Simulated assay, not measured.
Amino acid sequence: MLKKMLIVAAASGVVGLASLPVQAATPEGVMTCRDAAKLKYPADRKARHDFRRACKQAWRAQKNAAPA
């Protein structure tokens, strides 16, 4: 029973790691709003545009709220 539980835990770990977002190929290694939108909506340009605008707005709000 313990062996089966360990195998299931290892399998779920592999699946969990595979589902993490891929880092963009930017020099800083940070995913931009544009890259995140392309990953989330690869075929829908309107949804991608809306997501990108909302992402940038949230980023600006977070940037302005953080102490300098």
Score class of each variant (00 low, 15 high):
residue 1 M to V: 02
residue 2 L to V: 00
residue 2 L to T: 09
residue 2 L to F: 07
residue 2 L to K: 07
residue 3 K to L: 00
residue 3 K to T: 05
residue 4 K to Y: 05
residue 5 M to Y: 00
residue 5 M to G: 13
residue 5 M to D: 08
residue 6 L to R: 04
residue 7 I to K: 04
residue 7 I to S: 04
residue 7 I to N: 04
residue 7 I to Q: 08
residue 8 V to H: 05
residue 8 V to T: 02
residue 9 A to V: 03
residue 9 A to T: 02
residue 11 A to F: 00
residue 12 S to R: 10
residue 12 S to T: 01
residue 12 S to Q: 04
residue 13 G to Q: 08
residue 13 G to H: 12
residue 14 V to E: 02
residue 14 V to N: 04
residue 15 V to Q: 05
residue 15 V to I: 07
residue 15 V to A: 13
residue 16 G to N: 07
residue 17 L to C: 15
residue 17 L to R: 05
residue 18 A to S: 13
residue 21 P to S: 04
residue 21 P to R: 08
residue 22 V to R: 13
residue 23 Q to I: 10
residue 23 Q to K: 15
residue 24 A to K: 09
residue 24 A to F: 04
residue 25 A to Q: 13
residue 26 T to E: 15
residue 26 T to R: 14
residue 27 P to R: 08
residue 27 P to W: 01
residue 27 P to A: 05
residue 27 P to D: 03
residue 28 E to H: 07
residue 28 E to S: 11
residue 29 G to Q: 02
residue 29 G to H: 06
residue 30 V to Q: 08
residue 30 V to A: 13
residue 30 V to D: 13
residue 31 M to R: 15
residue 31 M to N: 14
residue 31 M to F: 00
residue 32 T to W: 01
residue 32 T to K: 14
residue 32 T to C: 10
residue 32 T to L: 03
residue 34 R to A: 08
residue 34 R to L: 05
residue 34 R to P: 04
residue 35 D to S: 09
residue 35 D to K: 14
residue 36 A to I: 03
residue 36 A to K: 11
residue 36 A to D: 11
residue 37 A to C: 13
residue 38 K to R: 14
residue 39 L to M: 08
residue 39 L to S: 15
residue 40 K to Y: 08
residue 41 Y to K: 14
residue 41 Y to P: 11
residue 42 P to Q: 15
residue 43 A to M: 07
residue 43 A to S: 12
residue 44 D to H: 00
residue 44 D to W: 02
residue 44 D to S: 06
residue 44 D to C: 02
residue 44 D to Y: 05
residue 46 K to I: 03
residue 46 K to H: 10
residue 48 R to C: 06
residue 48 R to V: 05
residue 49 H to W: 04
residue 49 H to G: 09
residue 50 D to A: 13
residue 51 F to V: 07
residue 51 F to Y: 15
residue 52 R to Y: 03
residue 52 R to C: 10
residue 52 R to L: 06
residue 53 R to H: 01
residue 54 A to D: 10
residue 55 C to Y: 14
residue 55 C to E: 08
residue 55 C to F: 06
residue 55 C to A: 13
residue 55 C to R: 07
residue 56 K to G: 12
residue 56 K to R: 09
residue 57 Q to V: 02
residue 57 Q to M: 03
residue 57 Q to S: 08
residue 58 A to I: 01
residue 58 A to D: 13
residue 59 W to P: 00
residue 60 R to P: 01
residue 60 R to D: 11
residue 61 A to E: 07
residue 61 A to H: 05
residue 62 Q to I: 00
residue 63 K to P: 02
residue 64 N to P: 00
residue 64 N to R: 05
residue 64 N to F: 00
residue 64 N to H: 02
residue 65 A to F: 01
residue 65 A to N: 12
residue 66 A to N: 07
residue 66 A to M: 03
residue 68 A to E: 11
